[in-house]
Design a protein around this nucleic acid. Structure first.
Lengths: 225, 225
DNA sequence: TTTATAATAATAGTATTACTATCATAAATA
DNA sequence: TATTTATGATAGTAATACTATTATTATAAA
């Protein structure tokens, strides 16, 4: 039996820790499935309660509202992804190789690790692509940021920024390039599948092409001239 | 007196053309002001009606719902911006110079042209930064796309893609780079002002730095090697 | 084993949102 | 002057986003 990977979560994101009970885990599991299937706009706590056979009131004991739940899921994802990245780039010395691996991990469809836990990472990956930016594109972004809700996202970007600086310490925009990589890994995927004329991958719809594009973009900029 | 610049709008975006009446123009004007001030989430047709001294029912005669109104505003913005770009790059022959000018126009805070019309372009620019991607990050993106709601956005990206191809006909990802420029012009601005540790411009908060970053990014990639 | 203590279920209720419908009236147009 | 059209006034509905209360059940401490 594999040790369950636990992502350390900011306690201000929930009222009761969903990892602490069967109901909590069920809330997370079915939230992911339902938001994946119907999108965050039409998803409601009432529908979720019906789906898992509990009451709205019970769900509100775990999460203050839908926004907090979305932020929770995104924070979990970024924490999980940072772990994946540190795991898969662990013994790579060459920073350029490491950066390529990061781009691949960011862009590739996640395979759900069924053994590990109740969260379907593949669904969650799709949720992050379509809904992730809504977590911070709000008027409360300042408040939420003060409460450290975006720390996992910022930490991940910082890690990528550091790798960029390792590749070329003189490159002037490591942080902005890091966020560009992360956001574009997702946006190009969304566009490829939904507004294909906005990308150069509309024909094949291959993730490998997004990876090639990002590699070209990143290494052209970062490489010493 | 300047000729009023009219942006040709997709008729499926509205029930009654808001440009055709004083009430319609008031709806647009105050929508922009209110969404700018309070964000799309807390903005409602009821509040808007109260603000402009009309009824909810009257507003619903112009727009089916809030989403359509947001899509209308974004479509207007992209149409307007494409006009700005064609105007300001009109007699530039050198494609690289043209591309630089485009990056500057995309990134710079718009100055409201008070003389021209009821839409405050400066507010609208901020709305596009914070809310623009919500216009297409939905489950109905396919439907909306079929109805051509995103044509102005796609047209603008196509124009930029063509300029990129003029700079280097052999560059492999003109479309994806075009969307990257457009999205990053906005996201870097949002991050700079709201989550500054994600960018390299948190200290100065200067738009000129975003422009420098994008120029470096774009020309490193596009230039023949 | 009893008892305290949590957690959940069941139920009800409120304010707001997102609309739709109807009818009267004012303004524009033919 | 008659008629079309836009708006205003008013009402109403279903769904959303919660909050509150009380009854049960499961768990864990004494």
């Amino acid at each position: 039996m594999k040790p369950q990977l636990q992502i350390r979560m900011n306690e201000a994101l929930y009222l009761r820790n969903p990892e602490s009970s069967a109901l909590g885990k069920s809330i997370i599991k079915h939230s992911v499935e339902m938001i994946y299937a119907q999108g965050i706009e039409t998803f409601t706590f009432k529908k979720l309660a019906a789906e898992i056979g509990t009451t709205e009131a019970s769900i509100y004991r775990y999460f203050e509202n839908k926004h907090k739940l979305l932020v929770y899921l995104t924070a979990w994802y970024w924490g999980w992804l940072e772990f994946q990245i540190s795991f898969h780039t662990n013994n790579i010395k060459e920073p350029a190789v490491k950066l390529k691996r990061v781009i691949k991990l960011l862009t590739s469809t996640v395979v759900d690790d069924k053994q590990t836990h109740h969260i379907n990472e593949s669904f969650l990956h799709q949720i992050i692509i379509a809904e992730g930016s809504k977590a911070y594109l709000t008027k409360q972004v300042g408040e939420d940021n003060k409460q450290q809700f975006f720390k996992p996202y910022k930490d991940l970007c910082a890690v990528i920024g550091h790798i960029i600086s390792e590749v070329n310490p003189k490159y002037k925009y490591p942080k902005s390039l890091a966020t560009t990589i992360v956001e574009m890994a997702h946006f190009q995927n969304f566009f490829m599948n939904n507004l294909p004329s906005l990308t150069d991958f509309g024909k094949t719809k291959e993730e490998s092409e997004i990876i090639a594009f990002l590699n070209d973009l990143v290494f052209s900029s970062v490489k010493k001239k």
